[in-house]
Amino acid sequence: MACLPTTSPALASRRWLGLGLFVLLCLSLGYAQNNVVKIVKSKAGDKVGLPCCHEIPTSESLQRHRVYWQKNTTVVVLAYVEGKKMPQDKQYENRTEINTRNLTLWMSPVEILDNGSYQCVVQRLSSSPNGDSVVLCNEPVILLVTADFSEPNVSAEVSADSCELTEMVVRCSSHGGYPKPQISGALNNEPVAWNVSWVSESSLSPYNVTGKFKLNVTKDTNFTCTVKYNGFTKSSSLLLTKPEGCAVPTVPPSYNVITATSIIIIIFLLAITLAARYLPRHGLRIQWKRVQKSVRSHLRALK
């Protein structure tokens, strides 16, 4: 008689626990997949379409539906009730329209202020006398608007110069873009850290960005400035050149040398005056040569 293997209660419980966790994981992934928020990206000035969560079948018409496009659940972007257009927020007047079949919201031109969460709500009107309606869909769509930054403007100013090195202040600036960017610099492809400042009137206004740092230039160096924003990149380069040649400044004579030279000249003039007055002409020539020799020796000593 064959014996069937037995399973311990602990092993059986672990199997059921693993099976339960597997089922829970599958349900969670299915729920997350059905509730993924759609994200639409656009540039300021372009035309963009926001997809709706429902499409009206060819057998039905817009007159049997209520369609609401709203922003942040409070602002009416565009709405149709029984085929009639309803009042909308002034910000979206003459800039929006919908496709009467797939209910896509078209917006043009796109502005930075259009950034945010939108919601498409669709209801089907009932043919019953009480006028009940059925909600067909209600899903959000995120609109991310990007505004291009200008090409970075890179400039360098010499703050100090010597024979060994040149100290420069390098600036990089860009303006008119959105969202808030990241700015970076590189010297011969090696990243550098610098001071960065941003200017914007509000969180939904264009940004102006400036970066600045000091460096010592001992040879010709290539500098690159890069502005990154929402997946886009703008770059500019500048060659930092070390000035050729070196002018050694003239060192003025010291105070002691000037004083000694002045004293020698005074003595020399005084000796000539006394010699001319008290010595005969022959003796004057001899004394003159001695004075000249003495002056020369003093000047050599000063050198």
Results as ranks from 00 to 15, higher is better:
residue 9 P to E: 08
residue 71 K to R: 15
residue 181 P to H: 00
residue 68 Y to V: 15
residue 205 S to I: 09
residue 235 S to V: 08
residue 283 G to M: 02
residue 186 A to E: 11
residue 267 I to H: 06
residue 22 F to H: 07
residue 127 S to T: 15
residue 298 H to W: 10
residue 154 V to N: 07
residue 145 V to T: 08
residue 234 K to V: 10
residue 93 E to S: 07
residue 137 C to F: 04
residue 65 H to C: 11
residue 262 S to M: 03
residue 179 P to W: 04
residue 207 Y to T: 02
residue 272 I to T: 07
residue 106 W to D: 10
residue 276 A to M: 03
residue 75 V to G: 11
residue 274 L to P: 02
residue 192 V to W: 06
residue 180 K to S: 02
residue 83 G to L: 09
residue 27 L to H: 04
residue 7 T to M: 15
residue 279 L to K: 00
residue 228 K to R: 10
residue 263 I to S: 03
residue 223 F to R: 04
residue 295 V to M: 09
residue 299 L to M: 12
residue 174 S to F: 00
residue 129 P to L: 05
residue 176 G to Y: 04
residue 183 I to K: 08
residue 53 C to S: 06
residue 89 D to L: 01
residue 100 T to K: 12
residue 171 R to K: 07
residue 284 L to E: 03
residue 204 L to P: 02
residue 252 P to F: 10
residue 116 G to S: 03
residue 63 Q to S: 15
residue 139 E to F: 14
residue 174 S to A: 13
residue 64 R to P: 03
residue 188 N to H: 01
residue 159 S to N: 00
residue 287 Q to I: 06
residue 300 R to P: 05
residue 190 E to H: 02
residue 106 W to F: 11
residue 44 A to D: 13
residue 204 L to V: 12
residue 171 R to L: 07
residue 40 V to Y: 05
residue 197 S to P: 11
residue 211 G to V: 02
residue 127 S to Q: 14
residue 299 L to I: 12
residue 213 F to S: 02
residue 147 A to C: 13
residue 10 A to C: 11
residue 204 L to S: 04
residue 141 V to N: 04
residue 208 N to L: 02
residue 18 G to K: 13
residue 219 K to P: 06
residue 274 L to I: 08
residue 11 L to G: 05
residue 24 L to R: 12
residue 157 E to A: 07
residue 28 S to T: 09
residue 216 N to R: 13
residue 24 L to M: 11
residue 137 C to Q: 02
residue 63 Q to A: 15
residue 108 S to Y: 00
residue 76 V to Y: 10
residue 268 F to E: 09
residue 90 K to C: 06
residue 294 S to D: 09
residue 260 A to D: 07
residue 223 F to Q: 05
residue 211 G to D: 05
residue 81 V to C: 07
residue 189 N to M: 06
residue 290 R to S: 13
residue 199 V to K: 01
residue 183 I to D: 08
residue 182 Q to K: 06
residue 244 E to F: 03
residue 38 K to Y: 02
residue 85 K to T: 08
residue 93 E to K: 07
residue 214 K to H: 10
residue 42 S to Q: 09
residue 273 T to K: 11
residue 139 E to M: 12
residue 194 W to F: 15
residue 139 E to S: 14
residue 289 K to D: 04
residue 71 K to T: 08
residue 293 K to G: 14
residue 171 R to A: 06
residue 121 V to Y: 02
residue 158 V to H: 03
residue 294 S to H: 05
residue 56 I to R: 01
residue 287 Q to V: 02
residue 215 L to Y: 05
residue 117 S to M: 12
residue 130 N to H: 11
residue 129 P to R: 04
residue 96 T to G: 00
residue 167 E to Q: 05
residue 122 V to L: 03
residue 30 G to W: 02
residue 275 A to W: 03
residue 287 Q to W: 11
residue 164 E to R: 13
residue 155 S to E: 09
residue 24 L to P: 06
residue 210 T to L: 08
residue 52 C to H: 06
residue 61 S to H: 12
residue 227 V to T: 03
residue 16 W to G: 01
residue 161 D to K: 03
residue 1 M to I: 12
residue 293 K to I: 14
residue 14 R to H: 06
residue 20 G to P: 10
residue 259 T to S: 13
residue 216 N to W: 12
residue 33 Q to C: 15
residue 299 L to Q: 10
residue 97 E to C: 00
residue 198 W to R: 01
residue 76 V to F: 06
residue 215 L to V: 09
residue 16 W to A: 15
residue 63 Q to D: 15
residue 216 N to K: 12
residue 231 G to H: 14
residue 144 L to M: 15
